[in-house]
C-alpha cells in the first residue's frame, strides 16, 4: 500500500531546476534509498516528500492526504506527529544535553517533562548512547552525535523516517553501526524509511533504490 507519493513535482531555485517532474511512490514499511550524483536533486526530493519544502507544481500525498497544499503550521504538525528526520550532521541543539535533545519532540508533542525524559533515555539506551545522555553535542564524536540524532528522530514512533546522508560524515564502521541501529529500530517500529545517499553501501541496505539524475527519476531499481 502506497504511503507516500510525489506526482510530477517540480522545484526550482532561481534559474536552477532542481526537480523536473519527478513521480515516486513509497509503500508502507518500505526502506527506500534515493541515490544520484551531487546536485541531482535527491535532497530536494526528500525535502518535498517530508513537507520541509513544497514543490511549485505537482502534488505530494501522505497516507491518502495531499500535504503540499497544507500551510506551514499544518506541515510542521504533520512532521512532528508522523515524520522523523535525521540529517548528515545531526543538527542537535548545542545548548541541550543529548537526553534533552531526544526528549524535545516529545515535549513539543505535549508530553510531560518526566515522562519525556524517561522515554528519551530508553531510546538512548536502544541506540547504545546512554553513556552520553548528559553530554552536550559539542562533547560527542560523530558516531555518537548521529546515534543521538537517530534516537531523536525515532522517539515519537514516526510512520516515516527521512534520513539525508545519515552516515555521510562518518567512517565506514561507525556509519554502518548508525545505519544498523536506525534500520533495526525502524523495522521494530514498523516505520517506512527514506534515505538519501550517494553511498552505494548504504543504498544496499534498502529494499529498493530510486535513482535521481538531473532532477528526474532516471530509473527505479527494484
Amino acid at each position: 500500500m502506497t504511503l507516500l507519493e510525489a506526482r510530477r513535482i517540480e522545484k526550482a531555485f532561481g534559474r536552477t531546476r532542481a526537480l523536473r517532474g519527478v513521480s515516486v511512490a513509497i509503500g508502507s514499511g518500505e526502506i527506500v534509498a534515493i541515490t544520484g550524483p551531487s546536485g541531482s536533486g535527491k535532497s530536494t526530493l526528500l525535502h518535498c516528500l517530508s513537507g520541509i519544502m513544497c514543490p511549485e507544481t505537482g502534488e505530494v500525498h501522505y497516507d491518502g492526504r495531499r500535504i503540499d497544499t497544507l500551510d506551514e503550521a499544518a506541515r510542521t504538525r504533520l512532521r512532528r506527529e508522523a515524520f522523523g528526520v535525521v540529517f548528515q550532521f545531526g543538527r542537535l541543539v548545542p545548548e541541550l544535553t543529548a537526553a534533552e535533545n531526544v526528549a524535545l519532540p516529545l515535549l513539543f508533542g505535549g508530553n510531560g517533562r518526566e515522562e519525556s525524559a524517561t522515554v528519551a533515555r530508553a531510546w538512548l539506551e536502544r541506540m547504545d548512547a546512554l553513556d552520553v545522555a548528559d553530554a552536550r553535542p559539542g562533547e560527542l564524536s560523530g558516531g555518537q552525535l548521529q546515534r543521538v540524532a537517530v534516537a531523536r528522530a525515532l522517539v515519537t514512533g514516526p510512520k516515516v523516517v527521512f534520513a539525508d546522508e545519515p552516515t555521510g560524515a562518518l567512517d565506514s564502521v561507525a556509519g554502518e553501526r548508525v545505519l544498523g541501529l536506525l534500520l533495526e529500530a525502524a523495522r521494530v517500529n514498523g516505520s517506512t524509511v527514506v534515505i538519501v545517499t550517494h553511498d552505494n553501501r548504504v543504498a544496499a541496505h534498502a529494499d529498493r533504490e530510486i535513482v535521481v539524475r538531473d532532477g528526474a527519476a532516471a530509473g527505479v531499481v527494484v
Binding site: N200, R201, A203, A204, H205, E209, V211, A218, G219, V221
Partner: peptide, 20 residues
Amino acid sequence: LLRQRAAHLERMRELTARKN
C-alpha cells in the same frame, strides 16, 4: 549502465543481508 547498476546493487543487497 542502468541494468548493470541494478545487478550490482542487487548483489550488494544480498551480501549486506548476509553481513547482518
